[in-house]
Design a protein around this nucleic acid. Structure first.
Lengths: 132, 132
DNA sequence: CCGCATCCGCAATGATACTG
DNA sequence: CAGTATCATTGCGGATGCGG
């Protein structure tokens, strides 16, 4: 049982912060994004499509998103086990807002990249690990 | 010099995650929100309007938002010092997207509250400190 | 195949005190 | 008034290994 950060701070009075805390964290958005593109996905399908996620984080994120009513979890009682995930209506309602944000992010990215802002150092990310 | 988390992970390929990292962190949104409501604000004005923020975090967040081109900083060389902050056009462009997200958050909040989901424990937030 | 528990490092945040 | 510097804290996310 870990701590769900839903009711912690001063989210209560701010729907925006509330939303950000529902979709916050490192892996929730990638999951939502993948499901919005592919419809219904199985556990390992998700895991393969989200580069770098561990079982731990995937399971945890899925459980939280399910708890919040953003995704559906459908478990088939068979051997071997099969579990399918998909967006709920609430989850789908989120997509347009995300697209708006993504649009803004795209603008910002080109601006920031153009102006070549000197955010010190870390420009060597995909330099050393390209293949593999 | 602290680490700006802009180019760290796999933001590069995802405008959405890029956006989330521009406005992420605990205090950036409250600052943007305050500025979008009040237009131009001075340092201590911001500090008073954002409950619980320290000088440290306020300064740091302001610097980062300025670096990203989301807010303007105008310093008047006088005694006592006066510094005014406001949203740039980029910052203003963000507001509609935030409103969409906030709208969704509002829906989610009422749903989650209605269904009275048992997010264990922390339901005693404003129980013990009500007055004061 | 799907998922959970435990331990741990590190970056983000907080507290406090000081400065032009 | 508008910050800066330093140290302490904390909680998210990563690694690893087990369980149905």
């Amino acid at each position: 049982m870990n701590d769900h950060s839903l009711y912690k701070n001063s989210f209560d009075n701010c729907p925006l912060t509330f939303a950000l805390n529902l979709i916050g964290g490192k892996w929730r958005l990638p999951i939502i994004w993948a499901l919005s593109k592919n419809g219904t996905m199985r556990y390992n399908e998700l895991k393969r499509s989200i580069h770098g996620i561990t079982n731990m984080m995937l399971t945890q994120s899925l459980r939280e998103l399910e708890l919040y009513g953003i995704i559906n979890r459908k478990q088939y009682m068979e051997i071997p086990p099969r579990v399918e995930y998909s967006l709920t209506d609430n989850g789908k309602n989120l997509i347009p807002a995300l697209k708006a944000l993504a649009h803004w992010g795209k603008q910002m990215k080109s601006l920031i990249t153009q102006n070549n802002i000197e955010l010190e150092s870390v420009e060597t990310v995909n330099e050393t690990e390209d293949e593999k």
